[in-house]
């Protein structure tokens, strides 16, 4: 009788172990499935349009901007004004004068800010970083937000008497 009870207890424990094993397998399989589904559902949305827009924005804004004829600066383009600003940065009195006796550097700085306000900032507060510099001398900077992640960068170089003028525009994600 005692032997029979012991045998039954052994068999019960064995069955319990089997059920535990099955339960563990089921939990593992469910967790795996959940991870796969979660991974697929939370996939990054398509970046095709974003990439295209950022690339076009960076290159087109800088290109159009430098080509633009300044309204009040004797028909000079913004690119020419930047060149003048670079060449005469340390001697402000020799800088080209625009309407209201404004110097080329100041006029360009204001125009840049106004253009970015009506483009990148108006189209959804897009983060950007703009800089114009000659070797060892930053001329002007304009930025919105922080550029820490991915960015689309466009550079333009203009030869000047003060060295190569580098104009950088980063459009940030």
């Amino acid at each position: 009788m005692i032997l029979k009870i012991q045998h039954m207890q052994k068999a019960g424990r064995h069955a319990q172990m089997e059920i535990m094993g099955l339960a563990v397998i089921m939990i593992l399989v469910s967790l795996g499935m959940l991870f796969i589904i979660q991974f697929n559902l939370n996939k990054e949305p398509s970046t095709l349009k974003k990439t295209f827009t950022q690339t076009q924005l960076a290159s087109n804004i800088l290109g159009s901007f430098l080509r633009t004829t300044a309204d009040a600066c004797a028909g000079n383009s913004i690119g020419e004004l930047l060149k003048d600003c670079a060449e005469n940065y340390n001697t402000p009195n020799t800088q080209l004068r625009c309407d209201a006796n404004e110097r080329s550097c100041d006029y360009t700085r204001e125009t840049i800010a106004s253009m970015f306000n009506s483009t990148l900032i108006a189209w959804g507060n897009q983060s950007y970083y703009f800089e114009a510099r000659i070797p060892g001398q930053p001329l002007m900077k304009s930025f919105n937000g922080r550029c820490t992640g991915e960015k689309e960068s466009k550079q333009n170089y203009i030869p000047t008497d003060a060295g190569t003028l580098t104009i950088v525009l980063d459009i940030c994600s």
């Binding site: 290109g63 901007f65 080509r67 633009t68 004829t69």
Partner: peptide, 18 residues
Amino acid sequence: FTPLPVSLYDPVAKRYNM
């Protein structure tokens, strides 16, 4: 919505606008 910056050329005034 896709904005694409461009130069606008005025052939009468011979100037480029943004």
